[in-house]
Simulated scan of single mutants.
Amino acid sequence: MTIFFSVVLPVILVFAIGFAVQKWQKLDLRPLSTVAIYVMTPALVFRTFYQSEVDMQYVYMIIFSLVLLFALIILNKFYVKVMNYSSSLESGMILSTAFMNAGNYGAPIILFAYGEAAFAYAVSFLVFQSIIMNFFGVYYAARGGTGIRTAIKAVFAMPATYAVIVAIALKSFSLGIPENLFRTVDIIAEATIPTVMIILGMQLARIEWGNFEWGKISYAVVVRLLVSPLIAWFITLALPIDPLLAKVLIVSAAMPSAATIVIYAVQFDAKPKFVSSVTFISTLISIITLTLLLMILG
């Protein structure tokens, strides 16, 4: 229970504050989300890559992300074929199970559980996951040739992508930035995590209850919270990954469905009610599963 009170509960309480504020005030999330996406997250990503030493562990992180993604996609395709579900439901299941909330849920959990070194890995992982989500998530939501073109545009429209490029370029050419300018970046970066946590709570407050397809939701929740970290564990055994990074990746893989993916499901009509339901239910149940996983990993 110590892990729950010291690691999980503080994060859940921040979500709860965002949830309560949204239920009370019914605010427009677009301006706040825009600031988080275009200003705050790029600042956090830039600081992380600018200060971190990029080595082979980051290559293993990319390999891990792709192997996990394709393993979950194959699992869903097999399940949909066996159950004889529709193509649109297949898209909804892939969206709700293959993409985890590594940013506004995973990063703070890892920070509280394992400290600043692990947090640097977590931020790097959320960048890779954002790129994967913006490409494959959009593709499976839209499908077909249009989906590919839209997915490519989505990746290059993501500010964090350019933050990584600029940070690595500066490091590669040994170019420093003035201390006062970096302090500005640092201030914004520090505010990013609590802001996106509150935004997640507000997003969850907008999901409507009622008429849940519990059979399909149960499958998706089990895959997202239990099967995904199990696959992640096997992948970390197969790669020469640093033990701390391995914990970060396994915990990240055990995160609930990404709230961002609900936007794609709504935009492209890829079973939005099902996807949003899985996001909400998996976030609630993750309070228990993450606590247990953190206890197992130590």
Rank of each mutant, 00 (worst) to 15 (best):
V196W: 02
T150P: 00
G18T: 13
F78M: 08
L44G: 08
M133R: 05
T192K: 05
Y79W: 13
T97H: 03
L66N: 12
T34D: 07
A253L: 04
T161M: 10
L293T: 02
I131M: 12
I63D: 07
L284S: 06
Y58I: 15
Q22W: 09
I199R: 03
V185L: 08
A169N: 03
K153M: 00
T48K: 12
L44S: 14
P42K: 03
F135G: 00
G298A: 08
L292K: 04
V166L: 15
A154D: 07
K171E: 04
T48Q: 09
I94P: 02
V138P: 00
F234E: 04
A189F: 02
V227K: 07
L9T: 05
F49S: 04
R30W: 04
Y219L: 15
P240A: 07
S172K: 10
V59C: 14
I3Y: 11
F125G: 03
P194Y: 09
F212M: 14
S124W: 03
G215M: 08
L204N: 03
S286A: 11
T2W: 06
F280W: 08
A120Y: 06
V59S: 12
Y38M: 05
F112S: 14
F128H: 08
S65R: 05
F274E: 12
N101D: 02
F70D: 09
S124G: 15
F4Y: 15
Y140R: 09
S52L: 14
L237T: 05
I73M: 08
V11Y: 02
A246Q: 09
K26S: 14
L226P: 07
A253W: 03
V166M: 11
M40I: 09
T41D: 05
A205S: 09
V222M: 12
E190Q: 12
L68H: 11
I199G: 01
A191D: 00
